[in-house]
Structure formats: structure tokens, C-alpha cells
Amino acid sequence: MATMMTTRQQALAPEDAQYLTFTLGGEMFAIGILHIKEILEYGHLTTVPMMPAFIRGVINLRGAVVPVVDLSARFGRPSSEVSRRSCIVIMEVEVDAGVQDVGLLVDAVSAVLEIPASEIEPAPSFGARIRADFISGMAKVNGKFVIVLNVNNVLSVDEMAQLAEAAQ
């Protein structure tokens, strides 16, 4: 039991104990804050033609052009409706040669929470209604489960680029 605990703690990287929670289609999700660079209010976005629905477009982030992924559409659900509380979470994603900034369109951000590793359960193999490899764990927050996302899989640039090519 003790060994199981330690391996799981290592897998979840103990320093990753702080999470940003946000809502998407009424459901709550969490991502480790170490991946997050900043959170922006939804502003002007340029649509890129001939791209799949989950690539919402690009924004100007202080002179750099950053793609924005519609998380809801990425999960295979309808595209997010933009509201007053819509936010773009700028994330750093690993690509083969370094990191790339990618924006994540979410309905609203909630809070930064400290979740101890012991409160995180492994992902169920089915039942969460999103792809299993997108989930890194299920965190218990106030007695409810929050899906902790595996950022590198959700925002896998390689996979998204392939999907984009297929969409053309």
C-alpha cells in the first residue's frame, strides 16, 4: 500500500499540488497551474479558415500570435458560446523543440485550489464522457469529483495538427 502511494505521488508530481478550476458546459475541470502562463478576458479573435471547429482561431498576445483551442469542441461537444465570463487560459504546451503557447477557451474560471495528491483518484477507464487519455485523475473537491486534465494530451499539437489536416 505504501509503495502504491509513493508511485502514485511521483506520477502526479507532488509539486503540482495547485490547480486552477474552471467550468465548461456546467461541468468543473482542473488543470495544474504549472502549465498556465496567464488568464485573459475573451477579446478579439481571428478565425482561421478551413480548420476544425476545436481550433477557434488566433489572438494577438503582446505581439505573438497564439492559437486558441475551444476545449468544449475538443471534447467533441458543441462549440462554446462566448459569454461575459468567457476566458482564454494561456498554457505552455510541450512540442518537439521546446514549448509553444496555446490558448484554451473556457466558460469561466473559478479558483486556484490546493489539492493534495491523496485526494486525487486515478481516472476511470470510461464513464467520464471525454477521452480517457485526456484525464490525468479525478480530484475530490468539497465532496464532488473534478476532472483533472492531462494538458499535454488535451493540447497535443501533433494530434491537433493531424486532425486539422484531415479536416481540409
Binding site: 481571428t46 482561421v48 479558415p49 478551413m50 480548420m51 481550433i55 488566433v58 500570435v65 492559437p67 512540442v95 509553444q100 496555446v102 499539437v157 501533433d158 491537433m160 495538427a161 493531424q162 486539422a164 489536416e165 481540409q168
Partner: peptide, 15 residues
């Protein structure tokens, strides 16, 4: 440059 995500996008060369 638009980055890797758009690398397969034809008819757009950049932004």
C-alpha cells in the same frame, strides 16, 4: 509564423 498547429494549412502562409 502560425506555428506547428497550422503547419498543414494550405493557402495561408502566416499571420
Amino acid at each position: 509564423p502560425l506555428g506547428k498547429l497550422f503547419s498543414n494549412l494550405r493557402s495561408i502562409s502566416g499571420s
